[in-house]
Design a protein around this nucleic acid. Structure first.
Lengths: 193, 193
DNA sequence: CAAAACCGTTGACAATTATCAACGGTTTTT
DNA sequence: AAAAACCGTTGATAATTGTCAACGGTTTTG
């Protein structure tokens, strides 16, 4: 199980981890399994862990005053799930993260992660790379959100993430795109023509 | 002029820069001034520089097929402007960045920045902190974009960034929020009631 | 200082998207 | 095996937001 994480780390670095470093990683990350629908993080709680997903799928969402869920992230294998703001600022999260499928993950606290980073330079490098990619992805998503129609956003998403279309129900994709399930259903009907 | 950058760096770190490090920073960052409306980056070009803004204001925007501008970022003093995706991937940018006010900045290429970072650990730390804050801000913006009405987004923005409301015209704020200037005008009229 | 550009507002109308209720066909739970 | 939950779709209608054109008041430009 830890091997997948180690491969992930190595694939984000020029130099592979030494076996001592691998050991450090293995002891710092705790395995955790949760079943479909169980919470990894609940609104109002402070987020204590980052999770590297080994197998399964989770979603992160907020719930508005009318009780409607808004999915801000979908996570699958090799994704990292957490609410960074809550974890760093130690503030109650406005998000829920729960398992969409039964999920196996490796979790670590921020303190442990910082300690690991001070011992393993490759981790710092990996985080930097991830932040970079993250910033780029966010930029793209933001731009498409403010400048494209719902239809175009769906088309882009479907062509960039065909696996997600197959793996998750439409209503979840709709929420992720910021539209209702009915609107997405009609958009798809349209574009078949 | 460089002093402002050095203060900025120091304020993002536990240890202040040594005078040798300060010197390195001063030689690596080139001063540059541009006038209102001049481009710092033009769509189709590869972004070569990161800019630390010493004085003035810039905006980053894309232009859609109808010729409508969509503002994705507004930058003022002590902000960093660049198109990270273009700069890192060496791909033509889909964005324009231009000066909204006459602007003084300090610019640096990615290669020089990487070289500086290898010599000045404090810079690496600063970048990490900035990435962290950036990720948090993006998360918030994204969530509000997919889960709030235009009216609520404007209210949040106005209460979090009152300086921006005073400094930039409404049509620019509207574009930044992903709505038209007419809609924003009507929203404001409403909320005065 | 005259012309042009910019800015916010308004009205009339159109397009997009949301809301609510209902349906039939799954899949999951008990 | 029956009941419940889930899922996508559709229709009718409402709410939100965009589009286009026009205006008067500013500010900037030549």
């Amino acid at each position: 199980m830890h091997q997948q994480l180690i491969s992930y780390i190595n694939s984000h670095n020029t130099l592979p981890l030494t076996s001592e470093e691998e050991e450090l990683v293995k002891t710092a990350f705790q395995p955790k399994k949760i079943r479909r629908k169980q919470y990894f993080l609940q609104e109002g709680d402070v987020c204590k862990y980052s999770a590297f997903i080994v197998k399964g799928a989770m979603r992160q969402y907020s719930v508005d005053e009318k009780g409607v869920e808004h999915v801000v992230h979908i996570f699958v294998e090799n994704y990292w799930a957490s609410d960074r703001e809550s974890m760093i600022m130690l503030t109650p999260s406005v998000f829920n993260i729960d398992a969409w499928e039964d999920t196996e993950m490796l979790i670590i606290t921020r303190a442990e992660m910082l300690s690991l980073m001070s011992k393993i330079p490759a981790l710092v490098e990996m985080i930097r790379l991830m932040d970079e990619r993250n910033a780029i992805a966010n930029q793209r998503r933001l731009n498409s959100t403010i400048s494209s129609t719902a239809e175009r956003r769906y088309e882009e998403f479907a062509s960039n993430h065909p696996q997600f279309i197959q793996r998750f129900p439409q209503h979840l994709i709709a929420s992720f795109l910021g539209i209702t399930k009915e609107t997405l259903s009609r958009i798809r009907k349209q574009s078949v023509k």
